[in-house]
C-alpha cells in the first residue's frame, strides 16, 4: 500500500503536499505559496421530481462535506461511479454552480462567481461555430483591458502552443474533434488561469487521438509559458487518470464523499507497460467496485 501512496482521507480531505515524493521532475518552489484551489465543506443538493406539486420531495444531497485542496504544479483527478456528482463538484469548484454549503478559495481568496482565473474545459467540446479558431481564442481576452493587436498576439501564441497555428483562420467545423478540443484548451489558457478544471476532456475522442492529446496536455498545462498552477481532472477512464494524475480522489456513495486519496508517484511520462501502472489501476478499480458504505450498512 505504501509503495503506491494510498491513504484514507483525513477530515480535511487533503494530504499536505510532500514536495520530495512526486518525482515528476518539475521545479519545486522554495517559497511557500497559497494553495491554488481549496474547496471547503462543499455540498450540493437537488430536488428530485415530487409525487405531486403540493408535496414535493425533500431536497437530496448529491455530495456532502467534500474537502479538496490542490497544490502548486499538481494535477488532481477525481474518480467515481456514474452519478456521484463529479462534474457537479467540478462546477462548484469553478463557482459555475453555487454549492449548498461550503466555500471555494482561489489562491487564498474566497470566490463566489466564475472567474477567468479558473478555466473550465468541457466534456462536450465547446467552440463557437461562427468564429474562426483565432476568434474563439481571442474571446477569452475580451474581458481584459488590452489592445486588439495584443489580443491577437496572445491568441496566436496560444494556438502555436497547442499546435494549431496553421489553422488560425479555419472554422471549428472544418476540424477534427481533437483539434476542436485543442482550440478550447488554447482559449482556456489564453485567459491566464491559475487553475484548470477538466471535465472528461477526452471522452468524445477516439482512443488514438485521446492518447496523443493526453501526452500533449500534460506538458502543455505545466508549460512555463502558461500561468497554470494546478489542474483538476474528472474522468471515468482510470487509464487516463493513472497516466496523468499526481493525486487521485475517489468519490463514492450517496450522498457522495471523498473516501480515499491515492498519490501516484510514478515519473512522467508514464506508460501502461510499467508494472506499477497496473497496481494503481487494480487498486482504483477495486475501490470503485466496492459497495458504498451506505450499501454495506443496509
Amino acid at each position: 500500500m505504501d509503495r503506491i501512496g494510498l491513504r484514507e482521507v483525513n477530515a480535511t480531505g487533503s494530504t499536505p503536499r510532500n514536495e520530495g515524493t512526486f518525482g515528476t521532475g518539475r521545479p519545486s518552489h522554495p517559497v511557500p505559496r497559497p494553495a491554488p484551489l481549496v474547496g471547503e465543506g462543499l455540498s450540493f443538493t437537488f430536488s428530485p421530481p415530487g409525487r405531486s406539486r403540493k408535496a414535493p420531495a425533500p431536497r437530496k444531497f448529491v455530495f456532502q462535506d467534500v474537502n479538496i485542496q490542490t497544490h502548486p504544479d499538481e494535477l488532481v483527478a477525481i474518480v467515481g461511479p456514474t452519478g456521484t456528482g463529479k462534474s457537479t463538484l467540478l462546477r462548484c469548484l469553478g463557482r459555475f454552480l453555487a454549492p449548498a454549503t461550503g466555500r471555494v478559495l482561489l489562491q487564498g481568496k474566497e470566490i463566489t462567481r466564475p472567474s477567468s482565473r479558473i478555466a473550465l474545459i468541457h466534456q462536450s467540446i465547446a467552440t463557437f461555430p461562427w468564429m474562426t479558431a483565432l476568434e474563439n481564442v481571442k474571446l477569452a481576452l475580451k474581458c481584459k483591458d488590452i489592445s486588439e493587436g495584443e489580443s491577437e498576439t496572445i491568441a496566436r501564441r496560444m494556438l502555436r502552443l497547442v499546435g494549431l497555428q496553421e489553422m488560425a483562420q479555419h472554422y471549428p467545423k472544418e476540424m477534427s474533434g481533437g483539434m476542436r478540443q485543442k482550440i478550447a484548451i488554447a482559449r482556456a489558457l489564453a485567459a491566464e488561469p491559475a487553475v484548470l478544471l477538466m471535465d472528461e476532456p477526452f471522452v468524445h475522442l477516439d482512443e488514438l487521438t485521446a492518447a496523443a492529446l493526453r501526452r500533449e496536455i500534460y506538458s502543455l498545462v505545466f508549460n512555463p509559458a502558461t500561468t497554470l498552477q494546478s489542474v483538476v481532472l474528472v474522468s471515468h477512464n482510470l487509464h487516463e487518470v493513472v497516466e496523468l494524475a499526481d493525486r487521485v480522489l475517489v468519490m463514492v456513495g450517496s450522498p457522495a464523499r471523498i473516501v480515499e486519496e491515492v498519490r501516484i508517484t510514478m515519473p512522467h511520462p508514464r506508460s501502461y507497460r510499467d508494472p506499477p501502472f497496473y497496481e494503481y489501476l487494480d487498486h482504483l478499480t477495486g475501490r470503485l467496485e466496492q459497495p458504498s458504505p451506505e450499501v454495506l450498512k443496509a
Binding site: P114, S116, L120, M131, L139, K142, A191
Partner: peptide, 25 residues
C-alpha cells in the same frame, strides 16, 4: 447550450460582448 453559458461566465464577458459575440449569432 449550457457549455456556451459556462464559457461566457468563465471568461467574464460583459453584456454587450455576450450579445455581439455569442447571444445574437
Amino acid at each position: 447550450p449550457g457549455e456556451f453559458w459556462e464559457v461566457m461566465d468563465n471568461h467574464e464577458l460583459g453584456y454587450f460582448t455576450r450579445m455581439r459575440r455569442v447571444i445574437l449569432p
